[in-house]
Amino acid sequence: MSYLQIFCLVLLANIVLLVEANTYTNPIVPSSPDPWMTYYKGYYYFTATTGDNTVRIRKSKTLDGLKSAPQQIVFNDGLHNTWAPEFHQWNGRWYLYYTAGRTADIMTQRLHVAESAGDDPMGPYHFKADLVGSGDNTLEVDANLMTIKNKLYLLGAFNNNGQQHIFIKPMINPWTASAEKSFLAAPTMNWEKAGFPVNEAPEGLHHNNRTYVVYSASSCSTVDYSLGLLEFVGTDPLNAGHWHKFPQPIFRRSDRTHVYGPGHNGFFTSPNGQESWIVYHGNDKNTGNMCTKDGRTARAQKFTWNADGTPNFGEPQPAHVALTAPAGE
């Protein structure tokens, strides 16, 4: 074999390795309900509901590497049923939002926030504040921090007469509200009521000077748990009448790809800053309770934008199929 042939074989092998390194498969993390992640300074940082009283974060240089990345416990404040953690950066520190209860009774679930010691998403974190309003005496879950017109707002879900509704609250800073919560959205359409009337897990999303909230609808125990869309179309974010609810789900089960109950999502940007990505949980089985920890796995996929400016999440991608990794890996 000539030196040229050997060189070509080595080059081909390197190309194959490069292609393999730039793919990933779903699920990106097993047994991970309510996932949330971000890309920061060369790493993906991932968290989800763990099923115990801790918040754990894992990090990886590649999306596919999250599967085997070790989890680090970054916070445990001794409460019960720690759910749906998210961490957001503000003024050089990270603010970790989570749901937890004073007792094992889930109706005591409330929103709380912890603060990092520096600019490392892995912490350490210390307790900063409870986010319960003065008149609140009901379940509150799924905190999300977003900015609208350069002002901070806290989004979340609360129990209202046996239904799950979404609220919005103005914030002075990530741990201090300037007013009580305002109603934002309720399950009014049939596709939002499968199993139980639910609007929950709101996530802010911005694109080309337009502001959206993506939320989860119906009970997570059903195959029809899905994502809906609100758009801010007025001047006052605290006025529910200034938001438009789209009549159909924008992301739902796919019998073709065998993904059921997709929902409770987050958003992140590719390493090169050019691509929009969604992370969400889904289930590959369509029988029984979809809301179990082991059944719900974290999945990710790139999404695009429609000509009218709305997000296009496409169809949930199948499990165990090689997909192109985020640009810039």
Rank of each mutant, 00 (worst) to 15 (best):
G204R: 07
P187K: 04
N208V: 01
N190W: 12
N199S: 10
G195C: 03
H206G: 03
A185C: 12
A177V: 00
N190Y: 11
W191F: 07
W191G: 06
A194T: 12
E192C: 00
M189F: 13
A194K: 11
A201M: 01
E203N: 08
H206V: 12
A194L: 03
A179Y: 06
E192S: 04
P187V: 08
V198S: 02
K169G: 00
N209L: 02
A179G: 11
M171V: 14
L184W: 02
I172W: 04
P174V: 10
P197K: 00
A201S: 14
E180M: 04
A194V: 10
L205Y: 15
N199F: 03
A201N: 12
P170I: 09
W175G: 01
N199I: 01
A185R: 07
N199G: 00
T188P: 01
S178G: 15
K181T: 06
E200C: 08
K181R: 15
W191V: 08
I172K: 15
N173K: 09
S178L: 12
S178V: 11
I172C: 04
W175Y: 15
P197N: 01
N173L: 06
N208T: 04
T188M: 11
E200F: 05
A194Q: 10
A201P: 02
T211A: 06
N190V: 12
E180L: 06
P170A: 12
H206T: 13
T211I: 13
N199M: 02
I172H: 12
S182Y: 15
E192Q: 11
A177S: 15
V198P: 04
H207Q: 10
L184D: 05
G204L: 09
P187G: 05
G204S: 07
M189V: 11
A177C: 03
E203F: 05
P174N: 05
N208K: 14
H207D: 09
T176G: 03
M189N: 12
N190C: 00
V198D: 00
R210L: 11
T188G: 06
